[in-house]
Simulated scan of single mutants.
Amino acid sequence: MTIKQIEQSIEGLDLDKALEKLYCFKDEFGDKVDKIIEKYEKKKLKYEKELNRYLGMCIYEKEAYQRGYKMIAGIDEAGRGPLAGPVVAAAVILPQDVFIEGLNDSKKLSETQREKLFDVINDKALGVGIGIVDEKQIDQINILNATKVAMKLAVCNLKIAPDILFIDSLRLDDINIVQNPIIKGDAKSVSIAAASIIAKVTRDRILKEMDAKYPMYGFSKHKGYGTGEHIEAIKKYGICPIHRVSFTKNFVV
């Protein structure tokens, strides 16, 4: 067998089985397979490191399962700080013992990584709910209250009822479900991290659509945040219908 044929023969196998087969090939083909073995050993170390990181983000979930909770909904939002567009919240219920490689706080991921994980989460989750509160309601009730409304909507839009909520930092009023607010939860809980990705990607897609409608503001680049470019555009063109009046009044002449 050639090196290429050896590599083809282990494609699709999990790392342990691939290495087991490679060591069998070593008995037959000798040093010829050493580089492939080294490559797969590195892959295994990388995988184990990622798995351990992920398991470290499952501590809150593990404790909740041990206490008898079965449907844990992680909740997070995107868009509290921008000058334009809605605040978007997501609620995600993951299966127990699921491993989603690369899952992390959305702020620690690139746009490409978030987009890929968005599809994986939607595919593997038991339930995903989205809540959106637009800029007009944000101006009416303030961003904190709007965030809480979006989070409640996200919970209501879950197809499966959760029995406990893991929320990034906040506590929701008037909701009859056990809550566990976790400070910096998007970096500590896989459920909240998953919600942070769903919320961020959903909101970014909305702002990209708005960029086509209001191209002078550059929404596809900054997603409504107060960059220098965005503030200069507001000063030049004024605000558009998706700007938050309460956030932009200091920039409008």
Rank of each mutant, 00 (worst) to 15 (best):
K35H: 11
R114P: 01
K35V: 10
I143S: 06
K32P: 00
C24R: 14
I141D: 05
G228E: 14
C24T: 13
R67L: 15
T202P: 05
A90F: 09
S110N: 09
V201C: 01
G185T: 11
H222G: 03
I6H: 05
A194Q: 02
Q113E: 15
K223Y: 06
Y237E: 05
A91F: 12
S169Y: 14
K184N: 11
G129H: 04
D139Y: 03
D14Q: 09
A146N: 00
D76H: 10
G129Y: 12
I36T: 15
V128L: 11
L170S: 04
D139S: 02
K235S: 15
E28I: 13
M1Y: 09
S191L: 05
I75K: 05
E41H: 12
S196M: 01
M1K: 10
L144Q: 10
G224K: 12
K221N: 09
K35A: 13
I138E: 07
K208C: 09
G74R: 08
K213C: 07
I206F: 15
K70G: 01
H222M: 03
Y60Q: 03
A187L: 01
K200S: 01
Q8I: 09
K21R: 15
T147Q: 06
A233L: 10
M210W: 15
C156M: 13
S9L: 05
V98I: 15
R205G: 00
E111R: 10
E38F: 11
D14S: 01
A195S: 12
I138M: 06
D34H: 06
T112I: 12
K43P: 00
C156Y: 15
I75E: 02
D163A: 00
L51F: 13
V120L: 08
D173R: 12
A199K: 03
A84D: 08
V133L: 01
F99A: 01
R114W: 10
V252Q: 07
V252F: 10
